[in-house]
Structures are given as structure tokens and as C-alpha cells.
Design a protein around this nucleic acid. Structure first.
Lengths: 160, 160
DNA sequence: ATGTCAATGAAAATCATTATCATTTAAACT
DNA sequence: AGTTTAAATGATAATGATTTTCATTGACAT
């Protein structure tokens, strides 16, 4: 599965996502010290297929079609589990429901539409470098950052 | 009223907040095209006195002591109003209740030491410009951003 | 002073998320 | 393979922040 993102120099690049099979799903679950259940495997499957950022509800509904036996409590619980183990990254925006993605191996930040909740991923090397410069100026060893841009997407602006 | 913050060179600096009186509160309310009510004036008073970032509930409880006639719906409604008019800045963190502050006239971001909790405020025009460029690239009207850097400060690093 | 429409407060509603708890099941152990 | 046992599940209730509703009050233009 591939994901289209914006990269350096304004060129679009394809980030390959390593193909994930059921065996590696099970491995991931065991790595967290949890039991392998069909529900958990199905949740991981659904997350690896779909669009990058999904809400718990959307994920539940998607799963519900093929596997109506999975309750939404399980979805919420497992998402929380995976978030705590950094296997999944949680993105929260305004008062909107949290969105989740399998933690990407390549770092990126988010541009969020405050009206429709849409999330666009971006990566900007220059900003990263400036952040390092700021940290250096204040003699900090930089270990992480959160950069979330908020605005109104084209569609919402036109919807007026 | 003054606010104690950590500033450049690890020296504490005092950022003066312009004194706000009832008349200017009323002016602010009229500027938003709203009617001046005692509730709204009291809400503004309470916000200008207290700690920088307050939740709607905290604000309601604080007001409730002196003015038990103010309902929490009014607090929520007015905070939303002011946020929409950029008079108040809303900060949301994880799933926690939103926190509000009278919009500071001087924009800044934060550099946080993950070991001792020290906060350094900084401002970087180049980063701001790059953020605008990113938003433009994706045809977003940029309305705000959150930039928090995390790291280890000099003292903590030397403390090893 | 008065009419009108916005503002208010109490209560109910909503919405995402979490907790409860009886039942099921993974997987460790015969 | 059968038994055990603690973890996992799903249905439901509970929670907590925020919003809506609606009858009443009040600001302010006239």
C-alpha cells in the first residue's frame, strides 16, 4: 500500500508502506504483551487498508460491515492500547473526535481544517531545521515536537 | 497585572499586560457586536485576573462565588463567542477540557524541558512564514497553529 | 418609557469516550 | 485434546464536556 504525501522541494513523493500481513499483525499484538484475538487482527487489517486518519467510530463502522461481532468498546480499547505502545498515533483537533493512524515510519506534521476536520499531512525540512536552530540557541537537546496547523480548507472556503 | 515567565538566556522576564478596566471590557464586548451585560463584564474581569489558562468549568466556579446568578451555559457561550472573535485563545490538549486565555498581544511558541518542566517562550518569524507557505500550498486559509518543542535544557543535561 | 430581539439560566440533550460486568476465549498447563 | 484461568469481549450504562432548548429577563434603540 502506498500513500501520497507532499515532500521536500514541493515535489510529491510516494512513501512506501511496508506490506503488512496477518502474521506481522499478530507479531505486533504479541509485542504489546496482549493476546492475539481475531478482533484485534481485524482492527489492524482495517487500519492498514483504509485512509490514513480514521476516527474510532469510522473504524468501527467499517469493521461492522464484515465483522458485525466486533463491539465498538473493543475498537476504542484497542486503539488506546496501541496508542500507548506508540503503534498508533492519535491526532486530536479542536473538539473533533480523535483520529488515528498506524504510526508512520516517516515523520510528518498535520494541517487541520477547523470546519470539516480534514487532515492533510505535510513534511517540511526547513521548519525542522529551524526548530533545531531554536533549540540550539537555548541550549536544549531537542527530543520531539508537536506542530499542528489549523485553518480552513479550499472546499470549506468555497462552501460559503 | 503581570505574568512571570521564563525568557531568553534563562533569565526571568516580566511581560507587562496592559491594565484592563471595566470600560475597556465593555468596549471589547461592543466590538464583537454583542450587548453589554453584567455577566459578560464579570467573565472578562475574572479572566483578566486569574491564571493564564483556565477551563470553562474553572471559570464558572470562580465566578460562581461572587456572582452565583451566572449560569455555566453563559460562560460556555461567551467563551465561544470570544474565541470566534479571536479575543480569547482556546488551547486544547489531548482529551482534556479546553483552556482559555485572553489572546496575548505578543505571539509566542514554547520550548519545554521534559525533565525539569522549564518553559522558554520563543518567537521565530521564519517558522511562521514557512507555516504560511505550507498552508498556501494546500490551499488552506491558515487561522492558527500549535508549535511545542520538547527537549532537555542545559542544566538538566549537565546534571547527569 | 417602551417594544423588540438578543441574552440568560435551568434543564435536558448530545457526543465522544470510558467503565461495568456477565460471558467468552486465548493460551498456559496438564 | 481437555482443563484451567486470567484476559478479552460486547452490551449496556455511565461519564464528562459541551451544546441546545425554551421560557423568562433585560439591553438599548426608538
Amino acid at each position: 500500500m502506498t500513500k501520497l504525501v507532499k515532500g521536500k522541494q514541493n515535489k510529491e513523493v510516494l512513501i512506501e508502506r511496508e506490506p503488512i500481513d496477518i502474521e506481522s499483525f499478530k507479531k505486533m499484538i504479541r509485542q504489546m504483551g496482549l493476546k492475539v484475538t481475531k478482533q484485534r487482527v481485524h482492527i489492524l487489517e482495517a487500519m492498514s487498508e483504509g485512509r490514513a486518519h480514521i476516527t474510532a467510530q469510522e473504524l468501527f463502522e467499517k469493521l461492522n460491515k464484515k465483522h458485525p461481532e466486533i463491539g465498538f468498546a473493543t475498537v476504542y480499547r484497542f486503539l488506546k492500547n496501541m496508542t500507548e505502545h506508540s503503534l498508533v498515533t492519535e491526532v486530536r483537533m479542536g473538539g473533533f473526535p480523535a483520529r488515528y493512524e498506524l504510526t508512520p515510519n516517516q515523520h510528518h506534521d498535520h494541517l487541520n481544517c477547523t470546519r470539516c476536520g480534514k487532515i492533510v499531512e505535510f513534511e517540511n525540512e526547513s521548519i525542522e531545521e529551524l526548530q533545531l536552530a531554536v533549540a540550539k540557541k537555548f541550549k536544549f537537546k531537542l527530543t520531539g515536537h508537536v506542530l499542528e496547523l489549523y485553518g480552513e480548507c479550499e472546499q470549506c472556503t468555497n462552501k460559503e
